[in-house]
Amino acid sequence: MSIEARRDVFQAIADPTRRQIISLIANKSMNLNSIADNFNISRPAISQHIKILTECGMVVVRQEGRERFCEAKLDGLSEVSNWVDQYKQFWNEKFDSLGSYLERIQADNQSNEEPNAD
């Protein structure tokens, strides 16, 4: 199996430059030069990021005359959202449990501090 066959949406968003590219083209398609103008890295480096995003299914590149336009395909982010949600549920349960524990401790401390009516 080639490396490209194993690329997924998590690899796409792992790099900050790729996340920024996705943000740039999320609402409008842009040509490669316009995208590259937003970065202080070489155009070939941007092309490599676009290639990875394409392999991950996050970007579609279409040819219009001599220009290549990149368009975001954000459907794959639902996989990331589902993965994050599962951990969000886990942590919410842990924080709820911690909150209950702290409330019990506080109630115990308050009952121990009350003066005896002897």
Results as ranks from 00 to 15, higher is better:
20 Q>L: 10
30 M>A: 12
10 F>A: 08
98 L>K: 08
106 Q>R: 09
59 V>Y: 09
41 I>S: 06
25 I>K: 01
39 F>I: 13
64 E>C: 00
19 R>Y: 05
92 N>L: 10
107 A>F: 00
28 K>A: 12
103 E>I: 01
13 I>G: 01
111 S>R: 14
106 Q>N: 03
30 M>L: 15
3 I>P: 00
27 N>V: 13
37 D>R: 12
97 S>R: 10
55 E>F: 10
108 D>E: 14
1 M>K: 08
60 V>W: 01
76 G>W: 04
53 L>C: 11
14 A>W: 00
44 P>V: 15
73 K>V: 08
99 G>T: 11
24 L>A: 07
74 L>G: 03
20 Q>Y: 06
70 C>S: 10
39 F>D: 04
64 E>S: 09
28 K>H: 07
26 A>H: 03
85 D>K: 13
8 D>N: 15
54 T>N: 07
11 Q>T: 12
39 F>N: 10
49 H>P: 08
34 S>C: 04
71 E>F: 02
5 A>C: 01
38 N>F: 06
58 M>F: 02
26 A>N: 01
1 M>S: 15
56 C>G: 08
6 R>K: 06
31 N>D: 12
1 M>I: 14
102 L>V: 14
53 L>F: 14
71 E>L: 10
95 F>S: 05
58 M>E: 03
28 K>E: 12
28 K>W: 01
79 E>T: 14
52 I>K: 06
61 V>A: 09
109 N>R: 14
56 C>P: 07
13 I>F: 03
25 I>C: 03
24 L>S: 04
60 V>A: 07
20 Q>N: 10
70 C>W: 05
56 C>Y: 07
93 E>F: 02
39 F>T: 12
114 E>R: 13
101 Y>L: 11
68 R>M: 07
59 V>Q: 04
102 L>Y: 07
85 D>Y: 08
9 V>S: 02
29 S>H: 10
113 E>F: 03
76 G>T: 02
21 I>K: 07
117 A>G: 03
93 E>A: 12
8 D>Y: 06
39 F>R: 10
58 M>D: 02
21 I>H: 09
87 Y>T: 00
48 Q>L: 11
52 I>F: 02
27 N>W: 05
31 N>G: 01
105 I>P: 00
78 S>D: 14
83 W>P: 00
55 E>K: 06
38 N>W: 08
35 I>R: 02
12 A>Y: 07
62 R>M: 11
19 R>W: 05
48 Q>V: 10
87 Y>Q: 04
15 D>K: 09
75 D>V: 06
25 I>Y: 01
18 R>D: 11
98 L>S: 04
97 S>M: 08
91 W>E: 09
10 F>M: 09
100 S>N: 12
73 K>R: 13
50 I>K: 12
105 I>L: 13
98 L>I: 08
107 A>Y: 01
47 S>M: 11
32 L>R: 15
